[in-house]
């Protein structure tokens, strides 16, 4: 009975994990199956006709997959860098400095967490169009430069940094920026890792905004590229489509696995999610 009780949670969690992983498994399965088997509902891992080479070959050769990936890297890193550069000082100010209106600003940050990008899409689109910035990397990145989620996450983490160390640093002659970047952020590296994973995954996988501002296939990040791919080439070739999807998912998987420990420490420490 005691043994059973010990294993029950593991069984339940394993079932849950299996359920979560099913779409990925299906994606992978489809990417190595031949067109004839695509709609086969069997989950058996070995297809009758092993078409992986053909599917991945088509995904890599028929569309500029490398170009999509490069676009994705440029856009994601550009967004991440600016987000960190702006959110860290903001979060530091909200967490560690005393000034009138601090509580109000923090409340506004939390309120802004509730605003979805879709509701801002139209004004942003019109603005970018007037500024002739559609079809540009900047247009794809700009709406995400200021991340209230980042401010909130860093604020939660910075708040726990001991005030006395900040004060000791002030007496030693550190500037506020040195305290912010050199001491406080350094004590919150798990939060930085967690936020980086959140941000990279979200923007790497984002289809909505690139689709709104980009029509030039040469600027398309992977998800938009996949969309062009399915439209133009092979509306019905799901094998190649899934091969492309598998290729674009891999970097994110690696990114998460590398930062896994910090990521988990980051979200458990800051009490988010």
């Amino acid at each position: 009975m005691a043994t059973l009780r010990r294993y029950v949670p593991h069984v339940v969690l394993t079932l849950g994990a299996g359920f979560m992983l099913l779409p990925f498994y299906w994606m992978f399965l489809t990417s190595i199956r031949s067109p004839a088997e695509i709609f086969d509902i069997s989950l058996w891992p070995i297809p009758r006709n092993f078409d992986a080479v053909e599917n991945y070959g088509r995904a890599a050769s028929q569309v500029p997959m490398a170009r999509f990936m490069l676009n994705g890297v440029i856009v994601c890193l550009g967004i991440l860098v600016v987000q960190v550069l702006t959110a860290v000082p903001a979060a530091y100010a909200l967490a560690k400095l005393k000034f009138p209106g601090r509580k109000l600003l923090l409340a506004l940050v939390i309120a802004a967490l509730c605003v979805p990008i879709q509701s801002l899409a139209l004004p942003l689109f019109v603005g970018l169009a007037k500024a002739k910035l559609l079809n540009s990397y900047f247009g794809m990145m700009m709406p995400f430069f200021l991340s209230v989620f980042a401010i909130f996450l860093f604020h939660q983490s910075f708040r726990r940094y001991p005030d006395e160390i900040v004060e000791a640093a002030r007496m030693d002659g550190f500037s506020e920026m040195e305290i912010c970047w050199g001491l406080v952020l350094r004590g919150s590296l798990p939060a930085l890792a967690a936020f980086s994973v959140f941000s990279l995954v979200a923007h790497w996988n984002d289809l909505f905004w690139p689709m709104v501002v980009v029509s030039d296939i040469n600027l398309a990040p992977p998800p938009l590229g996949m969309l062009f791919f399915s439209d133009a080439e092979s509306g019905a070739n799901y094998g190649a489509l899934m091969a492309g999807a598998a290729i674009t998912t891999t970097p994110m998987l690696l990114c998460f696995l590398l930062a896994r420990r910090q990521f988990i420490a980051g979200i458990t420490m800051t009490g988010v999610k």
Partner: peptide, 17 residues
């Protein structure tokens, strides 16, 4: 504070970790 040339010892010691 840094220009007052004072040294402070804190209760929690406040060493840079």
């Amino acid at each position: 504070p840094s220009d007052r040339n004072l040294a402070m010892v804190f209760q929690s010691y406040a060493l840079y970790p």
